[in-house]
Nucleic acid binder design. Sequence first.
DNA 1: TAGTACATGTAACAGGTTACATGATTGA
DNA 2: TCAATCATGTAACCTGTTACATGTACTA
Lengths: 182, 182
Amino acid sequence: MALAHTILALLVDCPASGYDLMKSFDSSVGFFWKATHQQVYRELAKMEEQGWVEPQLVPQEGRPDKKIYSITAAGREILIAWMHQPCEVASIKDDILVKMFVGGLVSPAVLQQEVTRHRQIHQDKLEVYRQIEASAFSTQPLPPVAQFQYMTLRRGIHYETGCIAWCDEAIAFLEQRSRQPI
Amino acid sequence: MALAHTILALLVDCPASGYDLMKSFDSSVGFFWKATHQQVYRELAKMEEQGWVEPQLVPQEGRPDKKIYSITAAGREILIAWMHQPCEVASIKDDILVKMFVGGLVSPAVLQQEVTRHRQIHQDKLEVYRQIEASAFSTQPLPPVAQFQYMTLRRGIHYETGCIAWCDEAIAFLEQRSRQPI
DNA sequence: TAGTACATGTAACAGGTTACATGATTGA
DNA sequence: TCAATCATGTAACCTGTTACATGTACTA
């Protein structure tokens, strides 16, 4: 159910089209929530039915018409009520740990290559986050809304840092195993 | 598709019933993969159709008959082929970050209470992992299979540690905000 | 005697992914 | 001229959750 609430959260600041929201899921909130454009359009249709959002048709020239959605008073209430309720604690769900669990089935080099690839991706993400930290969140004092958004970025930084630390441990372990074969 | 591969990974070491597997998802692999019993039974039926696993009916007295599944040669090949393929890099998906993103909508105390609750759960999990680390993985030298499983536990430890660090940051931020209201 | 563990399943629904479909504009 | 961006949608499918269904045995 949290996809609807994430969309409401994005609409609190400013109205947006399905296309705009979809882009948000690729950028701003993309590092803690993913959604495809199909999910967004389907969810918006449901939310409109329930009266949480209101569309406004904006005709355009040369490109398809836009449907700009705004949050309604009811939608705002739903979002605030949701914020007062306890939510699920996020847990790991990671394919590479399944591979590691039965890592003995393949040569250490195979897993090592895969872990190294993952490490690189985590490293790249971390660098992007650090750049956002240095550019978008460096003005002092930060406006209140930005402070909350900055806290979500901090989570991304903690997360990627932890992933990299684990990858390094795993790579060292696999290297050691390939040096002393069974 | 990785649920099937996780089940194959669990069956590599020893045959198991749907009920046994379900318990594994609550304990051993539970911290990096979740599945309900319905998912397990449905997946096993599909896997049997494809010839990845083989059931053996074990009649029991006083309780329902068991269906003990073993991995087949084909299933083993599927698992090993999967291990050679690159897989998705795990990313965060966390309700509490959606709440934090629009944290300004509610009083800081509301979010602070929720973050504190999450911190406690992460702390509890971390303690369990540390205990497992000290008991199940303390014998030196560790047998090869256990070494790989230990690496997955290490990921859990890194993850929970990072979560706690973020919660502490978030709590400090919210406390500061409630002291200096708008 | 009430709850938990054992053991398997069906059915319905919600959430997420992939493919297909359309069609103009802009930049390389 | 080819790909990408803008902009919305349908349909089918797979994955994950919740409720319902059955029935014994053991423990508190």
